[in-house]
C-alpha cells in the first residue's frame, strides 16, 4: 500500500496524471459545448477513433505532422458534419446517431487499416509522426513544478488552453450567448432570429474539432501509432466528465482530472499483485462512481431546499 501512496505522491505520477487527462479533457470540453447547445453527442468515441487513424495516415502519407493534423481535424469535422446532418436535418435521435457513428468508426478504422497495411491490429508498419513535447523555458527549471508542468506533449498544452478558450467562447462571445440560449430555450432563441440549427451545427463542429485533437493525441502523442479500439471508452468517459462538470469549463476540467486520476492510478497499480483485469476496470468503475456521487449530491441538494 505504501508503495502505491509513494507512487501517487511522486512528481512522476502528477506528470502522468496531466498526460492522461489530455484525451479526456479535450473531448469533454467539446461535449460540454454540445451539451450547452442542447445536443448530447454520444459520437465522441467514434470521432476520436477516426481522427486518431486519420492523423496517423495523414502524417505517414502526407509526409509530415501538418498533413496529419489536417487529415485528423478534417476527418473529425466531416464525421461531426454527418452527425449534425442526421441529427439536425433528418431528426435522428442523438443517442442512436452517436451509436451509429461509433459503430461505423470501429468498422471503418479496421477496414481502412487492413486495406492499407494488411494488418488489423496496429499501424506499427507505417512511419507516422507524433506531436513533439514542449519544454517551457524558465518553468522547466523550477524544482518539482518544472518536472510536473514542463515537458508535456504539445496537445496537452492545447487542452489546457482550450479550457480558457471555451470559457471565453461561452461567456464572452456572441456565439457563446447563442449556444447557451439555444440549449436552454431553443424557441426563445429562434424567435429572435437566432438560427437554432446553424448554432447547433457550429457547436457540433467545434466539439468535433476538440474531440479530433483528443483522438489525434491518442495516436500521435500518447502512443506513437494507431491500434484497434485504442480510444477504449475515453469518449464516453469524457461525456460523463462533461455532465458531471455541468458543462462549465472549470467543472469539466475538474471532473476530467478526477477521472484521469483513476486512469493514472490503473497504470500505477499494475505494480500490485492484483489480477490485471480489476485494475483495467478501474477507470470505468470510477466513472460510474463519480457520476453517481455527483448525482446523489445533486439529489440531496434539491431535497434540502425543499425541507427548509
Amino acid at each position: 500500500m505504501s508503495i502505491i501512496l509513494q507512487n501517487i505522491f511522486s512528481t512522476e505520477f502528477v506528470y502522468m496524471w496531466i498526460r492522461v487527462v489530455t484525451p479526456i479533457l479535450l473531448p469533454a470540453l467539446g461535449g460540454a459545448i454540445c451539451n450547452r447547445a442542447g445536443v448530447v453527442n454520444l459520437g465522441l468515441e467514434g470521432i476520436m477513433l477516426l481522427s486518431a487513424l486519420a492523423g496517423v495516415l495523414g502524417s505517414a502519407f502526407g509526409g509530415g505532422l501538418l498533413a496529419g493534423l489536417a487529415a485528423g481535424l478534417g476527418t473529425a469535422l466531416l464525421v461531426s458534419l454527418v452527425f449534425a446532418y442526421f441529427h439536425l436535418n433528418l431528426k435522428a435521435d442523438a443517442t442512436i446517431c452517436g451509436t451509429a457513428i461509433n459503430t461505423l468508426a470501429s468498422g471503418f478504422t479496421v477496414l481502412l487499416l487492413f486495406t492499407i497495411t494488411g494488418e488489423k491490429g496496429t499501424s506499427a508498419s507505417l512511419k507516422s509522426f507524433s506531436f513533439s513535447t514542449v519544454n517551457i523555458p524558465l518553468v522547466e527549471d523550477i524544482p518539482v513544478i518544472g518536472k510536473i508542468l514542463s515537458g508535456h506533449n504539445l496537445m496537452t498544452y492545447v487542452a489546457l488552453l482550450a479550457v480558457v478558450a471555451v470559457w471565453f467562447l461561452l461567456y464572452k462571445m456572441p456565439l457563446g450567448l447563442r449556444i447557451r440560449s439555444v440549449g436552454e430555450n431553443p424557441n426563445a432563441a429562434s424567435s429572435v432570429g437566432v438560427n437554432v440549427r446553424r448554432t447547433r451545427y457550429i457547436a457540433i463542429l467545434l466539439c468535433g474539432a476538440l474531440t479530433g485533437l483528443g483522438g489525434m493525441y491518442m495516436s500521435m502523442g500518447y502512443l506513437g501509432m494507431f491500434t484497434r479500439e485504442m480510444v477504449a471508452g475515453r469518449g464516453f468517459i469524457a461525456l460523463a466528465a462533461a455532465a458531471m462538470g455541468q458543462s462549465t469549463p472549470i467543472g469539466v476540467f475538474l471532473s476530467s482530472m478526477l477521472f484521469a486520476f483513476f486512469d493514472g492510478m490503473s497504470n500505477t497499480l499494475q505494480l500490485l499483485a492484483l489480477p490485471s483485469q480489476f485494475i483495467d476496470m478501474l477507470p470505468y468503475l470510477a466513472t460510474i462512481g463519480g457520476l453517481t456521487a455527483y448525482s446523489i449530491q445533486r439529489a440531496r441538494k434539491a431535497k434540502r431546499r425543499l425541507a427548509e
Binding site: 435522428a92 451509429a100 459503430t103 468498422g107
Partner: peptide, 18 residues
C-alpha cells in the same frame, strides 16, 4: 468489418425521422 459499416449506416438512416 464492412459489416459494421453497413450496420452504422442502416442505424443512421432508420433513425432519421425526417
Amino acid at each position: 468489418e464492412m459489416a459494421q459499416i453497413i450496420q452504422g449506416v442502416i442505424m443512421l438512416l432508420i433513425a432519421s425521422g425526417a
